[in-house]
Design a protein around this nucleic acid. Structure first.
Length: 944
RNA sequence: GCCCGAGUGGUGGAAUUGGUAGACACGCAGGACUUAAAAUCCUGUGGACAGUAAUGUCCGUGCCGGUUCGAUUCCGGCCUCGGGUACCA
């Protein structure tokens, strides 16, 4: 074999390990660059060919940066806590730690054979107590912090307590669950327990009653980003809404900073947009509606303050606290019936059938601007979790209110001149106001909006209600606090014990608090989390250690928390830990953090847009506030690699027979499509022998061939075992080598685009590497490199390639970079060029893409040091400059001829040249040119 | 519904700021080398029409229109597909 990739790749992988080639340390003499992949969850099935796409891309980029003199941090680790390992544990009884370890080992091997330049000494794993110690530590710090809006940062909770002692809560501008008003005296008079309960309303990590997504099948709560269309993302189980006391993180306090920070970072617009939508900032107004004959004011939120005169009723969310206050006795039975019906419906059912439902409370509110009485209704189209859980309904200009009004025959008032609301509401924020107030229903000296544009009316109303004290301008966010408890075993234990039902934190010096052993990984019979089963899960406050559960006396020994942290806990600050992974005194040392700062390039999939990428930005901002992280934003630049889909192959069975017809002939028969393993199909041609051996049912099958071949049909589907379309990177490496696989994955198409994996074409890349190898070798495969000087023609080829490849790498256009290499090697092959002056820079240039072969050739060229220590070649513009050019000229976009002209000519001279050219004169048919268009020294057109 | 993104040969995909559309690769067809195969190399390869031929002409970047000397690229409208999100007031 002339290009012996198995031997070469093995040799260099072992040498990289032995020499610690990719080990990095802080080095202030060099600029730093931090390249990070989103670390994988090590699942049982191993990697398929789609996973390494991003890893290869980031590896190419970090190698490229390294060649350009940067000190590159490029680590890898494992996000090891999670549901699949636990589900597997429940089924088999095997401890998730064992499964996880096994899977990690397999992942490690699969990644290693790809030749990725990770500093493996920095590898981390979120389920390792030495790592999750710092997850627990951060949680304690969040518990001991509150968020101050004036300072726009997290502050120690002691400051807030001091404030309460001195002046109470009045006038404080801090993040909290619900507004509280108490004086210093009131605070000081409260018991310790009451004070602690109040503080939970302010802590950044807090325990509170919240509406949660509860999955009965999984036996746990889920965060909003773990639920889609009323089903859990993992497993697709139904989710119901339920009020539970849970640990939460006050992510909402950071909403504005999370939004503002997006302007400072280089992410794709679509990803930023997704985050903006998720955060969902909306500017509006909060207004109070007085309830008739009751001492209650209903607070509502609206973005359409201008429509205040079109309010014909109000609606409360079924879970709203106002409901019980406002239900009149004569309506009570009906309301209770409705509330009961709503409770039974899952989130999914609510979405699936959008029937208009609701019930009248019997109470009326008074429109503060018109004085008109309006009925108060209850309906599940109003959400308790957003705004105030109550709305003013404007059926003329809100489609949901419109449907409700139509269904219950409530009045509808149009407010925009010329709008047609006979069939549907007019929701657009445009037009000129009318009916504001309605004729004959104005209040003396009240607000008048008639004749104003919608935008002006919104502004005027806001100003008016603020002046009159009827409400205030308010910004609302869709972003909810993160629910941080999971009723699960395989997660980080909370460093929390309960004393008199009040949560207390362990001391930082007591960490890590390790997961206890349990007999089963299932919830208890009474539905409590698995940790309830642990026999040793109590905290001895005096000796500061975990002791037997049976010893709990609630005097010195207390119960520990039974819930564990969710999947995103461990992945929220791992990028900081890589900077200083063995530090036992801090998450990251000041020195390491000051040097590495933040991630310069983060590569991963879009599926984390609203989960991980929100949580980790929040977490990092919190640590930034503490002074632990030096950068406000953790990920400066982010590139999303597209998903690699599977490409399935089919055979076509003629119905009711054991005959199979080739794709091109299938229309002549009634057939059914059957998946066939893509690994026994090449270029859509079925390997019949392997197929017959694949399954007994095909052993004696009759085939109807075309041109002597069986051609399979194909379709793009998810890569999945059940479609038999999973392609394993190990097999590809075995067959073609890691260098070929790396380059082929890049060649497949633009990095960010989703594309199907198709093995067709990998031969082309493999062929390229063989051609590259042959440039350095003679017919007998003996090294053969000439020391002759390169000529201009060859240097032009080289410098053209350097320029193109450099540009392409910097713009993550790796597919065209691979093309540039192919063109270059083809041209050098044509020139029969084997000159060292050419081959050395080319080897360096190619080494980020195909490191193994380049190391081998580099060594062959007589270098002792690794090619990774080389310097990226500089291109010289001088070799690219042309003295003359041969550009096409077209007349009115139709006729063309080619003419070489010196570059230095002025447009007038060009015109003269053209008229002197007999071809041109012929094409011009005697007409004189009106205009000769010369762009940047080239003729692009001649207009006659 | 709303918000993004994308539609180019048989296939994956190129094309800088508006300037020769289809680079590069796959596949296919033909050829060279070989006893043969593998490997390698060479030639052709968007479509239609004309020509013995070199070649030439026309049509072609989802559809319709616009701006321009010139549009895959810019503008307006529509269609299709992919992603996100949703009773968010």
């Amino acid at each position: 074999m002339e290009y012996n990739f198995p031997e070469i790749e093995k040799k260099w992988q072992l040498r990289w390990i032995a020499d610690k080639t990719y080990k990095v340390a802080e080095d202030t003499s060099k600029p730093k660059y931090y390249v990070l992949d989103m670390f994988p969850y090590p699942s049982g099935v191993g990697l398929h060919v789609g996973h390494p796409l991003g890893y290869i891309a980031s590896d190419i980029y970090s190698r490229y940066k390294h060649l350009n003199g940067f000190n590159v941090l490029h680590p890898m680790g494992y996000d090891a806590f999670g549901l699949p390992a636990e589900q597997y544990a429940i089924q088999t009884g095997q401890h998730p730690a064992i499964t996880t370890e096994k899977n990690i080992k397999r992942y490690g091997e699969q990644l290693q054979i790809l030749g990725l330049s990770y500093d493996t000494d920095r590898e981390l794993c979120t389920s390792d107590p030495a790592y999750y110690k710092w997850t627990q530590w951060a949680f304690i710090r969040m518990f001991n912090s509150y968020y101050c809006y004036d300072e726009q940062q997290a502050r120690p909770i002691e400051e807030l307590i001091e404030c309460f002692k001195q002046q109470g809560s009045i006038g404080l501008n801090v993040a909290c669950g619900e507004e509280m008003n108490f004086t210093a005296d009131e605070w000081n008079a409260k018991s310790e327990k009451e004070q602690q309960e109040i503080l939970l309303n302010y802590r950044i990590a807090y325990k509170g009653d919240t509406m949660v997504n509860w999955s009965p099948d999984l036996g746990t709560v889920l965060a909003n980003d773990e639920v889609s269309e009323g089903l859990s993302i993992r497993g697709g189980f139904p989710v119901v809404q339920k009020v539970m006391s849970q640990w939460c993180l006050r992510v909402s306090a950071y909403a504005q900073r999370l939004l503002d920070g997006l302007d400072m970072i280089e992410w794709t617009d679509s990803l930023k947009e997704m985050q903006r939508n998720w955060i969902g900032r909306s500017e509006g107004a909060e207004m109070l509606f007085k309830v008739k004959d009751a001492d209650v004011n209903i607070e509502i939120f609206t973005t359409r303050a201008d429509t205040i005169f079109g309010v014909t009723f109000m609606v409360l969310a079924p879970e709203s606290d106002y409901v019980q206050l406002l239900v009149k006795s004569e309506q009570k039975a009906e309301v209770d019936k409705y509330l009961e019906a709503v409770k039974r419906r899952t989130e999914r059912e609510r979405i699936a059938d959008r029937k208009v439902t609701g019930v009248f409370t019997g109470s009326y509110a008074i429109n503060p601007l018109s004085g008109i009485e309006i009925p108060i209704w209850i309906s599940d189209y109003v959400l308790a979790g957003y705004g105030t859980g109550a709305i003013m309904a404007v059926p003329g200009h809100d489609s949901r209110d419109y449907d409700f009004a139509k269904h219950f025959s409530l009045p509808i008032v149009p407010l925009i001149e010329g709008c047609d609301i006979s069939e549907e509401s007019f929701d657009a924020k445009e037009g000129i106001m009318m009916n504001s107030p309605q004729p004959g229903k104005s209040i003396e000296g009240g607000l008048v909006l008639n004749g104003l544009s919608v935008q002006d009316a919104i502004a005027k109303t806001k100003q008016y209600i603020e002046e009159k004290g009827l409400g205030k301008v308010k910004v609302n966010y869709r972003l909810r606090d993160a629910i941080f408890s999971r009723q699960r075993y395989w997660g980080e234990p909370f460093p929390v014990y309960y004393k008199n039902d009040i949560p207390h934190m362990l001391d930082v010096s007591d960490l890590p608090l390790e997961l206890p052993e349990v007999d089963k990984f299932l919830p208890t019979e009474t539905g409590e989390p698995p940790l309830r089963r642990a026999t040793k899960w109590a905290w001895d406050e005096q000796n500061r250690e975990v002791v037997e559960t049976s010893k709990i006396d609630n005097k010195t020994i207390f119960p520990l928390e039974f819930c564990t942290m969710p999947g995103f806990a461990g992945s929220s600050a791992y990028f900081l830990r890589y900077m200083d992974p063995h530090n036992n005194e801090a998450l990251v040392s000041k020195k390491a953090d000051a040097y590495w700062k933040n991630v310069d390039l983060y590569v991963g999939g879009t599926e984390h847009a609203t989960g991980h990428l929100v949580y980790s930005r929040f977490w990092n901002k919190f640590l930034f506030d503490l002074g632990v992280a030096s950068m406000d934003e953790p990920f400066q630049k982010l590139v999303n690699q597209g998903m690699i889909q599977g490409r399935s192959n089919f055979v076509y069975r003629v119905k009711g027979t054991n005959k199979y017809v080739s794709n091109g002939l299938k229309d002549d028969y009634a057939t059914m499509e059957i998946h066939v393993d893509v690994n026994i199909v090449e270029n859509d041609v079925l390997d019949v022998e392997k197929w017959r051996a694949w399954s007994p049912e095909y052993k004696d099958a009759e085939l109807i061939l075309e041109d002597g071949k069986y051609i399979c049909g194909w379709a793009v589907e998810k890569m999945s075992k059940s479609y038999y379309n999973v392609v394993n990177p190990d097999d590809m490496v075995k067959k073609y080598g890691a260098d070929t696989l790396r380059m082929y994955e890049m060649f497949l198409g633009p990095l960010e685009q989703a594309k199907p994996w198709d093995t067709k074409g990998i031969d082309g890349v493999h062929r390229f590497l063989r051609k590259f190898w042959r440039l350095f070798h003679d017919e007998k495969n003996e090294p053969n490199v000439s020391d002759e000087e390169a000529n201009d023609k060859e240097l032009k080829v080289l410098h053209k390639t350097i320029k193109k490849v450099q540009q392409d790498i910097e713009t993550f256009s790796f597919n065209t970079a691979v093309s540039a290499f192919m063109i270059c090697v083809n041209e050098l092959g044509d020139l029969k060029c084997n000159k060292r002056e050419m081959l050395e820079p080319l080897t360096i240039l190619l080494s980020p893409f195909a490191p193994h072969i380049c190391e081998e050739l580099w060594e062959m060229l007589g270098h002792k040091d690794s090619v990774t220590k080389a310097k990226f070649p500089e291109f010289n513009e001088q070799y690219l400059v042309k003295n003359t050019f041969e550009y096409p000229v077209s007349f009115n976009g139709k006729m063309r001829f080619k003419k070489p002209l010196p570059l230095s000519l002025s447009p007038a001279e060009v015109e003269k040249e053209v008229l002197a050219d007999e071809n041109a004169v012929r094409w011009l048919e005697g007409k004189t040119p009106k205009k000769i268009i010369v762009v940047l020294g080239k003729i692009v057109n001649i207009v006659v």
